[in-house]
Design a protein around this nucleic acid. Structure first.
Lengths: 331, 331
DNA sequence: ATGCCTATTGAAAACGTTTTTATTTTGGTG
DNA sequence: CACCAAAATAAAAACGTTTTCAATAGGCAT
């Protein structure tokens, strides 16, 4: 029914081995054969079945990027970095989403066990560290944008703790003492790290930590709005708000603007991720920038070299972040 | 090196055929054998190699969604719809991005030719219609969110022409006569359709089309900002602006707000897509809502049933859109 | 002419499954 | 106890490639 390498061989009057050699640009084949095979391929409209090839070669030249959802727009640059690096090495990057469901995450990792891809990158791991760690011993697996509390697994990220510290410290430097924190109930290592940075900055400045100033919620702007309402209506309200993501900050600022609060003066806002909207929203949001493209590129490069090398690189690479200062902190 | 079905067979003291039957839950196998095999699988940590399985079965149970980039956040819901439908049928959805490059799009479709996936959905086709059409005759291929100027290929979308008409007509109904249009230089059928709808609405209301009122640019907010500046600085400036995407509208409104223009009164704005930010941005943006999740779900369902059926459904399905009226049109 | 090396080729093995076909075992019936 | 059908199993073929191995042909030095 479907045209296979055998049909091509027959049409070109050569053996399947020769066809394969031509198709894979091996050098030890006569010009004559090359012509004949190419003509036959053209004529029959043949395109090789990778299922056969992959099986034989035991490789697919594909790597899988596992993300939570395509909603968080800031994955985009990371993925582009991965694509570029992978493509340059002859690999394709496939993306799959977990919806933050550990079971689904495991299901997708099944593609790794079953050799449907050569390697995988977790960009929002929800499985427990031990599980991931064990898997990383048997398969080519890396973490990006996050880190595990277990070391010894290839990991490309930023120092989220330090970033949280830096942002909070900046607000404190502006004379703020009641600094609210908006974070998520869904725990990720990066959130925890950012929170810890926030704590350390307070401690560092002899400001007592007030649990009332922490708001836990979802990942969307609406949560930011509710959080802001809550934080500003406290008996002892917040005079600055640090969120672990720009989306939350923007939601928060929405509330502030609509309730006559002067952003950047009455209350300062600091976000995280430097998403495109953070500088489109008025007032513009101060935020922490992380090198998305570079993280993606780096993790793909290292992972692919791990595929090739016998002993894999299991290091942790923390790329530099930076503070972007805009209207929302009065800059 | 790696544990295969043979090793399991040996360990369980049965034939590979029996192992396969157990693993695939065939009924004609004794309870005894089931136990033995399961024990062996457990012991050896075996997980089947899909390259072998896929080759033999000539199917992968995976479908590929090809998008431009993960940046346009509104793909997210479409993909979720596809996932849900696919997952329910035992399929996985893989996502790959083209960056609007037709060559890369073709490269990705190679996964279809080479049987690395069972079917594919194009969500932002950049290849020419004829090429796609020809491919759709040989492989399971569908279009979503867009349509081709060639019929007779499975396609799930909305009536973009009508939607463009509706939005423009609404602005006209508000007494506007100088209606600007912000659109993209990158041509997609949906953009063209929306533009045509805009034209038809003008004609319908005996407003002469003025090419000066059309601004072509990129897909980002910054373009919207520039466009707005241009449209408001015309000798005969715009009193309403319809953009083919919310991102453009938001960029445009950013300019208006910053230059003392009262949005929803001095100038009306109408967007497209109803992205989350459209109602977070202040003022809130009036926009066209399209049923993203449903389009994704529908196309996946129909495509999978096409995989199964001998003669495929090649119909075009236009799902209903609706106008969302908010601040930016003074509602 | 003979032998040897190299370039090119074809036959066949291999990859790890599923499925078909053939064989053995089981259990029930006369 | 013999027979048969049904159930369970094993052996082998099949999927479409790549790669190994062996064989052939041709060119060159002796």
């Amino acid at each position: 029914m479907n045209v296979t390498i055998k049909d091509v061989a027959k049409a070109a009057n050569v053996s399947v081995a020769t066809v394969s050699r031509v198709l894979n640009r091996k050098n030890n084949v006569s010009e004559e054969a090359v012509q004949a095979v190419n003509r036959a391929v053209e004529e029959l409209g043949y395109s090789p079945n990778f299922l056969g090839r992959d099986l034989r070669k035991s490789e697919t030249k594909r790597i899988l990027a596992i993300i939570a959802s395509t909603e968080q727009t800031f994955y985009s640059e990371v993925l582009r970095g991965m694509q570029d690096a992978a493509y340059a090495e002859g690999y394709d990057v496939l993306i799959a989403t977990t919806g933050n469901d550990p079971d689904h995450e495991m299901h997708l990792l099944g593609m790794l066990f079953s050799r449907a891809v050569d390697a995988a990158v977790l960009l929002a791991p929800k499985l427990d560290s031990k599980t991931i760690y064990d898997l990383s011993k048997r398969y080519r697996l890396a973490i990006c944008l996050e880190r595990l509390d277990i070391k010894d697994i290839l990991c490309v990220t930023i120092n989220n703790e330090q970033a949280g510290y830096d942002a909070t410290k900046y607000l404190i430097g502006k004379g703020r003492k009641r600094i609210g924190l908006i974070t998520t109930t869904i725990r990720s290592q990066s959130s925890v790290d950012r929170e810890n940075g926030y704590m350390r900055a307070l401690k560092d400045s002899n400001i007592e930590f007030d649990p009332e100033l922490v708001f836990y919620g979802d990942y969307d702007a609406e949560t930011g709005t509710r959080a802001c309402k809550y934080l500003l209506e406290l008996k002892n309200p917040a005079d600055a708000i640090f969120s672990i993501s720009d989306t939350l900050s923007i939601g928060a600022m929405t509330y502030a603007v609509q309730h006559g609060v002067t952003v950047g003066k009455d209350v300062l806002f600091f976000g995280f991720d430097n998403i495109p909207y953070s500088h489109m929203f008025i007032p513009k949001l101060s935020t922490v920038d992380q090198p998305c493209y570079l993280q993606g590129k780096t993790v793909a490069e290292k992972l692919i070299s791990n595929i090739r090398n016998e002993v894999p690189d299991t290091g942790t690479y923390m790329l530099p972040h930076s503070l972007i200062l805009r209207d929302s902190t009065g800059d």
